[in-house]
């Protein structure tokens, strides 16, 4: 089954084509028109500009994508991100998908952006998802543990009560003067740091639930800098504090994930979201699963699928399409506040 994926929920206009078969998906082609340069010139995401750029980029992207084949591939379904995100940006993708679905007479699937992250680890992966499965979605705006009883059957089992994990990386990076985006900056500095240099809290580890909290860690980093009069301009001090901070974040994410994995007796673990690119997190999760739950299959996304892309939207779309879970092109609407669970 060939699925065309369309994603315009924020900065990137992205389209992709995948092949899905027997519960596995493979990328055939992926194109992204990034607006980073335009936003750098205007100093941030300006929604009307973002929407206008999506409008001018989307059709050329689709025709370039399909024009690469001498015979146009037969598309079995179109999957599009319908939310959450900026309404004006989402609308461009949704309207395009709707028009193409009607013009080509191809079924349409509506995908939640988070669901895309959830399936990002299944792309180009030989292992299939076995249920129950547990997904850890970690990004700048999300920190969630989602239990899956089947494709499309989601239950929220834990989430952050305040700051997201990616937000903790960004804000502590700012305190250390490491710049934006904070995740890669902290991870890089941490490579040459001692994770035990500074004692930082492991929030919520003593609570039985699967929720997270990172605002206390954020303030703890601030107080450490202040009370110890740390010269964060010193690369070694920044490295040690980065390593200590990253380890605190990773420890909590891993511990809660393992506890949830045991409690729900999962068969597959899925990782997704921007923070899924963090090597320390990937390594720590792999090590703990190997030690505590070696029987659990782990699906970790290729790094290129941790940022926003259309391949993951097409992948999620495939699992809906396989169940014939389609939406009428006349009914689909962009929903900026759509919560998956």
């Amino acid at each position: 089954m060939k699925i065309l994926g369309i994603e315009t929920s924020c900065d990137e206009t992205a389209v992709a084509l995948i092949e899905g078969k027997n519960g596995r998906v493979r990328e055939l082609e992926s194109l992204v028109a990034s607006q980073i340069d335009i936003h750098a010139a205007t100093g941030g995401v300006v929604p009307e500009i973002a929407a206008r750029e999506h409008v001018s980029a989307i059709i050329p992207l689709v025709s370039t994508l399909l024009g690469q084949w001498t015979r146009r591939p037969k598309i079995d379904a179109i999957a599009v991100t319908a939310g959450p995100g900026l309404f004006s940006s989402l609308m461009v993708g949704v309207e395009t998908a709707k028009a193409l679905a009607l013009a080509w007479n191809v079924p349409l699937v509506r995908v939640n952006h988070i669901e895309g992250h959830l399936y990002s680890s299944s792309i180009n992966e030989a292992k299939t998802i076995k249920f129950p499965a547990l997904a850890l979605i970690v990004s700048g705006g999300h920190t969630e543990l989602i239990l899956m009883k089947g494709h499309g059957a989601y239950r929220l089992v834990g989430r952050t009560k305040d700051d997201a994990a990616g937000e903790a990386f960004d804000k502590t990076a700012q305190m250390m003067g490491l710049g934006y985006p904070g995740g890669p900056a902290v991870a890089k500095a941490a490579l040459s740091g001692d994770p035990r240099a500074y004692a930082l809290p492991r929030p919520m580890l003593n609570e039985k639930n699967f929720d997270f909290s990172f605002s206390g860690l954020k303030t703890a980093v601030l107080y450490t800098i202040r009370n110890k009069h740390l010269a964060v301009e010193d690369p070694q001090i920044a490295a040690d504090l980065s390593a200590s901070t990253q380890t605190a974040i990773v420890d909590v994410l891993v511990e809660k994930t393992i506890r949830a994995a045991k409690k729900f007796k999962i068969k597959t673990f899925l990782l997704g979201g921007g923070v899924a690119a963090n090597d320390a997190l990937r390594a720590a999760l792999a090590a703990r699963f190997k030690k505590d739950l070696p029987q659990v299959g782990q699906l970790v996304p290729q790094k290129k699928y941790t940022t926003d892309n259309a391949v993951m939207i097409a992948a999620a779309g495939y699992f809906h399409a396989a169940k014939k879970d389609f939406i009428s092109p006349l009914k689909i609407k962009a929903d900026p506040n759509w919560e998956l669970v």
Partner: peptide, 28 residues
């Protein structure tokens, strides 16, 4: 950072009877 703005809004939401978990809106 960390001065308690979100913590205050959490308290405010609770006082107004809002049951939702109030997360930091930095990203959204």
């Amino acid at each position: 950072l960390g001065a308690g703005k979100t913590a205050f809004v959490k308290g405010l939401a609770r006082a107004l009877g809002i049951k939702n978990v109030v997360q930091s809106p930095t990203f959204l």
